[in-house]
């Protein structure tokens, strides 16, 4: 399988490590102090264990371990292994407000200040 890396172009899937569904980006947000521990446990149980496991298009996380070490969200057909597309996981996480946000400006150089 060739994964169309958005920055590096087509790369062999062997360079990547597979994690699981892209829904793993949506880690439950728990706010403290915790008011309902059971509900939090339910949310994490669903997040960690339950899977859509579709036969068809599947959005999934691949880590470019033998490459630029970026996380990708790859859309792939689980019936045929056809890869439809790949995006940077950070872009997707930021779009839903999950990432670390836009890059902070570089710290001012104290020597020249």
């Amino acid at each position: 399988m060739l994964i169309p890396h958005p920055l590096l172009g087509p790369r062999d899937a062997q360079e990547f490590v597979y994690l699981g569904p892209a829904a793993l980006i949506d880690r439950p947000q728990i706010t403290f102090p915790l008011t309902d521990a059971s509900a939090a446990l339910d949310a994490f149980h669903v997040y960690l264990h339950e899977r859509e496991n579709p036969a068809g298009l599947h959005r999934e996380l691949w880590f470019h371990e033998q490459g630029d070490r970026s996380w990708l969200v790859v859309t792939r057909d689980t019936r045929t292994h056809d890869i439809v597309g790949a995006e940077l996981a950070t872009d997707i996480a930021r779009a839903v407000g999950r990432g670390r946000g836009p890059e902070a400006p570089p710290p001012a150089n104290k020597d020249t200040a």
Partner: peptide
């Protein structure tokens, strides 16, 4: 398993 049990409205702790 995932496909058949989805017809009963269940999500399983299983990947194929």
């Amino acid at each position: 398993s995932g496909l058949v049990m989805a017809m009963a409205g269940m999500k399983l702790p299983v990947e194929s």
